[in-house]
Design a protein around this nucleic acid. Structure first.
Length: 339
DNA sequence: ACCTGTCAAGTCTGG
DNA sequence: CCAGACTTGACAGGT
């Protein structure tokens, strides 16, 4: 099984390269010259996009071909104070530069809109802002010139005391969105509400791929093991995704499956992310799916970001079942330990 | 240069 | 019904 590792948004290795610089709504509102304030926002956005380019170059230099963009690339985009402001046209060259690098190197990229984007909500206003948020993310991917292999990953959302009703509401509200948005979505199992089998059932119902978060599955188990669920999860990728220009992976039959890996932080709060990845639990997962999975993409969700990715590769180097391909890719073959 | 408190968002819980 | 917790990176304002 070929395994590629990636990380989220910012680097702990490259300094002063934040792709998420912002301005608070409060301080924006205090500025007397609104035009100047908007120019400042656009300047910050251009800096964030430039830092994204720097991070992509860093990724290429270290063979990292999996990356999640910051959802805060454009500060206050979509905020009620800035309803008349649409900065994307202005920034198309900046977005296009990012897309060119992604395509030239066969990188797999995407977004993960914040938890405030929730399609299971019973509130009309929350649904409206959630759909608008997804549309903004899709417009940014379009501005990059990336095809539908570049996805926006979200959760099902809250349960509001009735998970069954919330799930049905999610399905109805999801299907009411445009095709263009729906084809850009993946769904992830949650650490509190919709577990892996519940999320999978909804993925199958609405026809989108499922991102399995193995830490969330441990914190919020579904009663079915990963081995039991994995064949169906794989099928969501072969049936509901297409390989296009934004993807450099081999083989037909859709995108390779993507998972999220993190380790719980020491202490009371089992849900928060540790600085690094514990290799034992991670390899245990690889072993359980290796026989069914030719290639797998893994987003490392750890406080130390790419630093945790490099540490994990170092930890794996000694193992007899791991063969290092490059700095962020290896092959895993389940084999019996020699006696 | 560094430290502390504040900011954003939606949901959920406790009172 | 309302205040606070949750989460996270970064701002904002102080020294």
């Amino acid at each position: 099984m070929k395994v590629r590792l990636g990380y989220v948004a910012m680097s702990t290795v490259v300094q002063n390269a934040s792709p998420s610089k912002t301005m608070t709504a409060t301080s924006f509102a205090k500025l007397a010259d609104r035009d100047a304030a908007i120019r400042k926002l656009e300047r910050i956005a251009a800096d964030n996009l430039h830092n994204t380019v720097r991070l992509l170059r860093h990724n290429i230099a270290h063979d990292i071909r999996l990356y999640r963009f910051s959802s805060k690339l454009i500060p206050l985009f979509g905020h009620p104070l800035l309803e008349d402001w649409d900065p994307i046209a202005e920034l198309v060259p900046n977005f296009a530069e990012i897309g060119e690098i992604v395509r030239a190197h066969g990188m797999r990229v995407g977004f993960h809109p914040d938890h405030f984007t929730v399609l299971s909500t019973p509130r009309e206003d929350v649904l409206r802002t959630s759909v608008a948020d997804l549309e903004r993310h899709v417009r940014m991917l379009d501005a990059m010139g990336l095809g539908e292999a570049a996805k926006c990953n979200i959760h099902i959302g809250g349960t509001y005391g009735d998970k069954e009703a919330a799930g049905q509401r999610f399905v109805r509200q999801f299907l009411a969105m445009s095709d263009a948005v729906r084809r850009r979505i993946t769904l992830e199992n949650d650490d509190k509400t919709f577990n892996a089998s519940e999320t999978l059932a909804i993925c199958e119902q609405v026809g989108v791929p499922m991102v399995l978060d193995i830490h969330h599955d441990q914190v919020n188990p579904s009663g079915e093991t990963v081995e039991e669920l994995w064949p169906r999860i794989l099928r969501t990728w072969t049936d509901f995704s297409v390989v296009d220009g934004a993807d450099g992976m081999d083989g037909a039959g859709g995108l390779p499956p993507k998972i999220h890996a993190s380790s719980p932080k020491e202490g009371n709060n089992v849900r928060s992310h540790a600085d690094y990845i514990e290799p034992e639990g991670f390899v245990e997962f690889l072993r359980s799916v290796a026989g069914m999975t030719p290639s797998l993409d893994v987003m490392i969700e750890a406080k130390m970001k790419d630093g945790a990715l490099f540490q994990l590769m170092d930890d794996l180097r000694q193992r007899s079942d791991v063969t290092r391909v490059d700095q962020a890719t290896f092959t895993y073959e389940a084999r019996e330990a020699t006696p």
